[in-house]
Simulated scan of single mutants.
Amino acid sequence: MLNHEINRAFKQRLQTGKPILMPGAANALAARVIEDLEFEAVYLSGAGLTNTYLGMPDMGFVNLTEIAQHTSTIRDATELPIVVDADNGFGNALNVRHTIRTLERAGASAVQLEDQKTPKRCGHFSGKEVVPLEEARSRIRAAVDARQDENLMIVARTDARATDGYNEALDRASAFIEDGADITFVEAPQSVEEMQGIPSALNGTPQLVNLVVGGKTPILGAPELGEMGFSLILYANVALQAAVYGMQMALNQLKENGRMDEGGPVASFMERQRMVRKDLFDELENRYAI
């Protein structure tokens, strides 16, 4: 399926009102697992990419080239819509324009931009700072103008809940909607009451809620969040946290026992080959054999 067709279908699906449960992927293999389990969309997590690719915390260490490379790789691995975390756009409005053009070409279906200062931090870290509202709005206007496919969606995130309070975060999200954002994302609400207030205050525009296991936002079920009015329910790094836990479990057992077979906490050899579509590449090899 062509990317503009994926984008159009994703935008239409979002407009139905039924919430989409969206896991994050830090690499193409995780995206393959997410698609295999029949989720409807995948999120390229900046935090996950930083943790996995660099072994470093989410503190602004990845750049646009790296994010574009991984977007392209995931697009080649799956036909799911990809929501790409582009941090704060990597500079001023002109940089944001370049970011949107680059990620659209790489295969993004939606691009998320936030209002943090550089260097940005994980939304559930302390010590965040946001730029003045007019600067943040200029980023969103530039992003909206830059897209070439009208179905590429712009996700406008604000981290102002942590810096200036809940009401300022809602005001910023409302301003981003005026500037053309397709989806808004108030990061890290800290109570169920705050979560309930976001869709009602921003009625009519799809809302994303980010649930971080161990983070600041209460964990609620997808049906309850859908009833509140959230359209995208994001678990940006559950797959990554599960992978870390799984590696620790398997490698500890290997260290203790000095051996590992298929009775251990590992996927089978055949399952690993299935996930990377070895049968497809065998078929292609036979087709093009001399």
Rank of each mutant, 00 (worst) to 15 (best):
I140L: 04
V186L: 14
V131M: 12
A142F: 04
P132K: 06
V130M: 06
F185N: 10
E135V: 11
M153R: 03
R137G: 03
Y166N: 12
V131R: 10
I154P: 01
D164N: 15
D164Q: 15
G165V: 01
V130E: 06
A162E: 14
S174V: 01
E168P: 00
L152G: 10
T184H: 03
S126D: 15
F176K: 07
G165Q: 08
I183P: 06
D164V: 00
A156T: 07
D145G: 03
F176D: 08
A181L: 07
R139V: 01
D145C: 03
A181P: 09
S126H: 15
A181I: 01
V144A: 07
P132E: 14
S126T: 13
A146T: 08
V131A: 13
V130P: 03
P132D: 15
E168N: 04
V186H: 04
T158R: 12
I177F: 09
I154H: 08
A146F: 09
G127R: 04
Y166F: 15
D179S: 12
V155K: 02
T163S: 13
A181N: 05
D182W: 00
Y166W: 03
R172V: 00
A162F: 00
A142E: 10
A143M: 08
K128M: 13
T184M: 02
T158A: 11
E150Y: 01
A173K: 08
L170Q: 03
G127V: 07
